[in-house]
Design a binder for these strands. Structure first.
Lengths: 151, 151
DNA sequence: GTAACTGCAAAACTTTTGCAACCAG
DNA sequence: CTGGTTGCAAAAGTTTTGCAGTTAC
């Protein structure tokens, strides 16, 4: 049973990023942001929407994911060259990738691992990255720790 | 003009990893390993092969790239969820990804950035990665520094 | 009313697969 | 010869596109 009451806050959030709060966007936003941090693919979100009785097309799911990403509500995670993952956690953090299952998980943040907040790449500086190509700046540093079962 | 003389060393290298040294594999190996480190996609290698007058099918290029990767001759680089890149440099190293052009470059190794040789993930340990999920071991740590033009 | 948005189906792409023909040893 | 390889074409899977119809405001 999905709560379908209009959500004043969600409407405002969408407006704030310049997106018209349509039925589909509100429903997808509820699925994405109403259940803690998630890592979704277009297909998994589409399946979740259908399972919740939300009427939406796959093309709209793709559009919405990209619009939310452009608006800074989502972050794209590249770990697998056959699928696009989107992360509802847009804070600086890194990922575990489970090679056996294809699943993704956030690497839990510890005090030691944190860099200066809001500083892209701050966390990697301690390991010696100082020289960038001319006229280039860091957009983001992606770190994926790929895991396999031990033994 | 491509040198097409049989290459005793290349034949030996392929045999060493258990691959039969066929015309196509030798030609692709020459393209891949005869011109310094490279980052190729299946399509770019296929185009390069055609341009060099090598008769090979795209399916064989895919097969060969995966066989070479499984044999440890190549390493797969995941930076873009729409394409598979392969790197002829199989040593521990990280990549720049140029968001504007989609190109990849190795991050030049400096003494400060190097970790213990042959220790997967050794380089990232200094930034605090200590706790892994139960019964898991690190297969590899991928670090991609995504760059955009400054200004 | 109007521009933005959605849904559907088709198209575009990359990658994989199945199988007959081919070739290295 | 014989099994591993190759080429082709078709299939599979994900993502994008074009356009008519719908919706938010």
């Amino acid at each position: 049973m999905v709560d379908t009451r209009p959500n004043v806050e969600a409407v405002k959030n969408l407006r704030d990023v310049g997106l018209r709060p349509t039925r589909q966007r509100l429903a997808l936003a509820r699925l994405l942001f109403g259940h803690g941090n998630q890592h979704v693919t277009a297909e998994s979100l589409y399946d979740g929407a259908l399972a919740s009785g939300i009427k939406v097309s796959l093309a709209t799911v793709y559009n919405t994911l990209h619009q939310f990403t452009a608006a800074g509500l989502l972050r794209q995670v590249v770990v697998d060259s056959t699928r696009c993952y989107f992360d509802t956690n847009v804070a600086e953090h890194q990922h575990f990738y489970f090679e056996d299952t294809g699943e993704i998980a956030d690497i839990p943040q510890t005090p030691e691992i944190s860099g200066a907040p809001g500083q892209p790449g701050a966390r990697i500086n301690p390991i010696g990255l100082t020289d960038l190509p001319a006229d280039m700046e860091i957009s983001r540093v992606d770190i994926v720790v790929r895991l396999r079962s031990a033994g």
